Simulated assay, not measured.
Amino acid sequence: MTVAPIDALAPVVGSCYRDGVVTVRRRRPDSRMRLGAVRTPHFDLVHDGTDLVVEHGLGLGEVDDDLAGLLSDELFEPGWLRGSELFERVFTGVVLTCADEPEVAWEAFYANTLAAVGAAARAEPRPNSNAAPAGHGCIRDYAPVYARAESLVSGRSVLELGSCFGFLALRVAADGRAVTASDVSGGTMRLLGAMAPRFGVDVATLTCDAAHVPLPDDSADTVLAVHLLEHLEPDHAAQVLREACRLARSRVVVGVPLEDSPSEQYGHLWAVTLRVLREWGAAAEGWRAEVTEHHGGWLVLDRG
Rank of each mutant, 00 (worst) to 15 (best):
S261G: 07
T222G: 01
H231Q: 10
G162W: 12
L269R: 15
R148N: 09
P125L: 04
E74K: 02
W298P: 06
R27K: 11
E88F: 05
E107K: 14
V24Q: 07
A10C: 02
D30R: 11
L114V: 04
G267R: 12
E150C: 14
V145H: 06
E88R: 12
D141E: 15
R39W: 02
L224W: 09
R122P: 00
S182V: 08
R126N: 11
E88A: 14
A121E: 15
S31V: 05
T273F: 03
H56N: 03
G166M: 07
L60F: 10
L114G: 05
A121C: 09
Y142V: 10
A237H: 06
V3W: 08
V226N: 10
L229G: 00
A271F: 07
S163V: 08
G200T: 11
A68G: 03
T188W: 13
Q239E: 15
G267I: 10
P125V: 03
L215W: 12
A111V: 01
V254E: 09
V240R: 09
R26K: 15
H42N: 15
A210L: 01
A173C: 11
L247Q: 05
H231V: 01
T188S: 11
G137V: 02
H295M: 04
A147V: 13
D217Q: 07
M189E: 05
E107L: 13
A173L: 05
T50G: 08
C98R: 09
D217G: 07
V213T: 11
L70F: 02
L277V: 06
A121I: 07
P41M: 08
L161K: 06
L277R: 02
V291N: 03
A131H: 06
G297R: 03
E150W: 04
L247Y: 07
A173R: 08
R171D: 01
P29I: 10
Y266N: 05
A115P: 00
V21P: 02
S263Q: 13
G155C: 04
